[in-house]
Simulated scan of single mutants.
Amino acid sequence: MTEIEQLLARVARQARDTRPWGWPSLPEPVDPSVIARAESALGFPLPALLAALYLRIGDGGFGPEYGLLPLLDSAPSGEPAAVPQYAANRAEGLKDPDWPWPEGVLPISHWGCGMYACVDCRDPDGTVLFFEPNADR
């Protein structure tokens, strides 16, 4: 079993047993057509590990804080889905050039107070970044 397979197995076990705030149950995994629609809307591919989480574990609803965002449709908790949130962040950045949202950086988990865990989809390794808009306050 590869390290990725071991990681996915550990995440699957944890996802079955723990619900982030606002998630009554673990959503079903997405099918490959949802990944294709998301990548088409984004204009770039998802890193393999992120796609595997959606394909094998669930369409959000697991992980830290408010959990992994669903890919295309809003969550029962009222959290936005990752693809629409990315589009909104990019559009907002066009209005305020001093605060642009970087191309290819997909928000994947809301941590409250405007903070997001994000994945740099331009990086084949899918580097995880933390967006903290409140740092200067």
Rank of each mutant, 00 (worst) to 15 (best):
I108P: 09
F44C: 02
G61Y: 07
N89I: 01
G67Q: 04
D17T: 12
Q14M: 06
L71E: 06
G22E: 07
L69P: 07
G22H: 12
E92I: 00
D136L: 10
P70V: 14
Q85L: 15
R90T: 07
I57H: 06
L50P: 08
W111Q: 05
Y54R: 07
D125Y: 02
P107L: 07
M1N: 10
G63D: 02
V128S: 11
N134S: 13
E103T: 08
E28F: 00
S77F: 11
L50E: 07
I57M: 02
G67R: 01
F130E: 03
G126Q: 04
A135H: 15
E3V: 13
P64V: 01
P29W: 04
G22T: 09
G67H: 05
I35V: 14
P76G: 12
A36K: 08
S25G: 07
V128G: 01
L7S: 10
S77D: 05
P80L: 09
R56S: 14
V105C: 06
R19F: 07
I4L: 11
G22I: 13
A75W: 01
I108Q: 04
V105M: 02
Y66T: 14
N89Q: 11
D96R: 15
D123T: 10
L8C: 03
S33W: 13
R13T: 11
R16Q: 09
S33T: 15
L68R: 04
P29M: 03
G126F: 11
E132V: 14
Y54T: 11
V11E: 08
N134W: 06
F130P: 01
T18E: 14
L53E: 10
S25L: 10
G22W: 08
Y54I: 13
T2W: 02
V30M: 02
P97M: 02
T18I: 12
A51K: 13
D136Q: 08
V30L: 01
R137S: 07
V30G: 04
A52S: 13
D96Q: 14
E5H: 10
P133E: 05
E3P: 11
P133F: 11
P32G: 15
L8G: 01
P24V: 11
L72A: 05
A87P: 00
L129I: 05
E132W: 13
W23R: 00
C113K: 09
L49R: 12
F62C: 05
A82K: 06
P45Y: 02
T127K: 05
L68E: 01
P45S: 02
R37S: 09
L53I: 10
P64Y: 00
R10P: 01
L94H: 09
D96F: 13
L49V: 12
Q6V: 06
D96Y: 13
M115Y: 13
